[in-house]
Simulated scan of single mutants.
Amino acid sequence: MIYLNVEINGNYGEDTFWTWFQREFPSSKFEIPTELKDEDIVLRYSTLGFLPIIGKQVALCWGLYPQIDNFFGTDMYDNIMQKVYETARYSTYRIVATKESVKDYIRFGSVDIIPMGVDTNIFIPMNNKKELKEKYNIPKNKRIGIWIGSYHPMKGFGELLKYASENPDIYWIIIWELQQEEIEMPNASNYFKISQTQIAELINCADFFLSTNKLSSYFMLEWEAMACDIPFVIIENSTREFYPSANPRDDVFKRGWDRVSVKKLWEQFLIRRGVKW
C-alpha cells in the first residue's frame, strides 16, 4: 500500500500530482496510517512534519523554502522550515524535484530527484491563436505577454509592473494563483480561479511568457508554460538552473518533466524499496 499524505490536494478541480499518482498507482490512497507493513510506504509532503510511526516514509521536499530563505534572508518561514527539515531528517527517503534542491537536503541522507511532472496532454502548443484570442477577448493587433503568479516577493510582481511600464505597447494576460488576490492590473485581462485547460488556452494566446521568478528553480506554472512551447522572457533575479531553448517543450521532455518519464522514475523507486502497488 502507498499512503498519500498531502497538505493541499489542489484547487478548482485541477489534476495535481496527487490525483495523477493515485490514478496511475491504484493501490495508493489518501490516508495517514497508524502502522506500516514491510511492503507499505508513505509519501508525505514535507511541510506536514514527520509522521512518528515505524516503516518506510518518503519526505517530498518540493517546496522551495530553503531557496527563499537564502535569497531573501527572512525568518518568515522559520516554522515551516523547521517542519520541512524535521520530515527530511527522520524520513527513510527524501525526494526533490530538481538537482538545485539536492544540496538543501543531502545532510539528512540520500536524496532522489523525481520531478513533479507536467501534464503534457493539457499543456500543449495550439495552432488556433486567432480563435483563442476571440474566445477570451484578447486584442489581435498588439503584442501579448502573459504572467502567472501571486503577490509573494519570490514571484516578482514588482518586476512585472516595471517591465509593463517600460513596454506600454504590450497587452497582458494576468493569471492570479491564489483566490484572495482580487486585483486587476491595467492594460490587461485578469483571471482568477480558472481551470488548467483555460490556463493552457490563455498561454497559447500570448506571444511570450514573462518569468520574474527570483529563485534558481522554476515553479510548476513555468514548466507548464514551457510545455506549451511559448517563448520565455526572463527577468534576471538569480542564476537559473537552465535557460529554456527556442523550443521549451523539448526541454520539458529532455529533462524528464513529462508524466510518462515521471511515472517510470516512481516505478523504479518503488521497486528498489520493495513496495507493492
Rank of each mutant, 00 (worst) to 15 (best):
D75G: 08
W172Y: 06
G158A: 06
Q180C: 00
Q82H: 11
L48E: 08
W62H: 13
R107G: 08
P153G: 03
T47W: 10
D38E: 15
Q82I: 01
P244D: 05
K29I: 13
V275D: 02
K162L: 13
I146F: 01
D119W: 04
K133M: 14
E241L: 10
A246L: 15
K263G: 09
M81A: 05
I174K: 05
D251S: 12
K103N: 08
S216Y: 03
N9Y: 08
N167H: 12
I199Y: 07
N187D: 10
Y191C: 09
Q82C: 11
D229F: 09
Q22A: 14
R23S: 14
W257L: 03
E267C: 09
Y136M: 04
V275G: 08
N11Y: 10
W20R: 12
R272T: 14
D207N: 15
A227G: 04
L161Y: 11
G63F: 01
W20S: 13
R23L: 10
V42G: 02
P26L: 08
Y45R: 00
I124L: 13
N128L: 06
R143E: 14
P153D: 06
A97R: 13
L64T: 07
P153R: 02
L132D: 03
T87A: 14
Q180A: 03
E24I: 12
I194H: 06
V58Q: 04
P186H: 03
Y85M: 09
N128G: 05
G117Y: 08
F232R: 08
F242C: 11
V233K: 15
W62E: 08
I174R: 06
N167V: 13
Y90C: 13
W62C: 02
S27A: 15
N237V: 06
T212E: 00
